[in-house]
């Protein structure tokens, strides 16, 4: 069973590596969105500092959202998805592997570059570890929830907008606790509660989302 997990994981990571231009585009998107805010709200350092956690989190969320359609589209088009669904392996398992590969190829680079972007917005350096930690805990939740939406909108016309409409309301709690963690750390009240809630959310999403996603994939490929 685990061999399927690692086989799918390795294959998806290899595919992501071959198509690394896509990954770079996601990263560039994240950077550009963050850079837009100073133009929009003014470059006053205090103001930028105040909105930095929220801006970084919203940008990470949008970057995740815009790459979600890639999660199953290729496999759906070339029939791999049907093969996987016909196989005896539990679907939740390889769905988890695919989401993990997706997160490693799109979420992790965003998490890694976020501290640098935080410095552009003059976020206090004390908040950087919490920012990275909250993104590392939160973006997998986004990927897991988004995978359900991506599976449901597979192959639909205008699927991208529909996907956004479906998953953005579900992303709100993650955004609240993620950006809230950084703000709580900076205000001195400590981010432990936020990070624990994010971890709880991740555990819940890991348990439920792959099952829902597998069911959604069955429905969409029927």
């Amino acid at each position: 069973m685990l061999s399927t997990f690692f086989a799918v994981l390795r294959r998806d990571l290899l595919l992501a590596w071959r198509g690394r231009a896509d990954v770079l585009v996601t990263l560039a998107f994240f950077i550009i969105v963050v850079c837009l805010f100073p133009f929009g709200v003014g470059a006053e350092p205090n103001q930028l500092r105040a909105i930095a956690p929220g801006v970084l989190w919203v940008a990470a969320l949008l970057a995740c959202l815009l790459s979600l359609h890639r999660l199953f589209a290729q496999d759906y088009a070339d029939g791999t998805l049907e093969q996987l669904l016909l196989s005896r392996e539990p679907a939740a398992l390889w769905v988890m592997a695919k989401v993990l590969a997706f997160w490693i190829s799109t979420g992790l680079p965003v998490v890694a570059i976020a501290p640098a972007m935080a410095l552009l917005l003059d976020l206090e350096q004390g908040g950087l570890p919490v920012l990275v930690l909250s993104l590392a805990l939160g973006t997998p939740i986004l990927a897991l929830l988004g995978a359900v939406g991506a599976a449901l909108t597979l192959g639909l016309r205008g699927g991208g907008m529909l996907l956004a409409l479906l998953v953005l309301p579900l992303f709100v709690p993650v955004l609240i606790f993620g950006a809230g963690a950084v703000e709580a750390e900076l205000s001195g009240s400590g981010a432990v509660a936020h990070l624990l809630l994010l971890s709880g959310g991740l555990a819940g999403a890991l348990a439920l989302a792959p099952v829902a996603c597998a069911a959604a994939l069955r429905i969409s490929t029927d």
């Binding site: 939406g149 579900l170 709100v172 709690p173 609240i176 606790f177 439920l208 959604a216 969409s220």
Partner: peptide, 24 residues
């Protein structure tokens, strides 16, 4: 079926959303 799945996912999330918004 797709609608049913998203309705259920939403229903699971409604309390979470309410709690998180209250906290925020």
């Amino acid at each position: 079926r797709a609608g049913a799945i998203i309705a259920l996912v939403g229903a699971v999330n409604v309390p979470i959303i309410y709690f998180s918004v209250q906290w925020w």
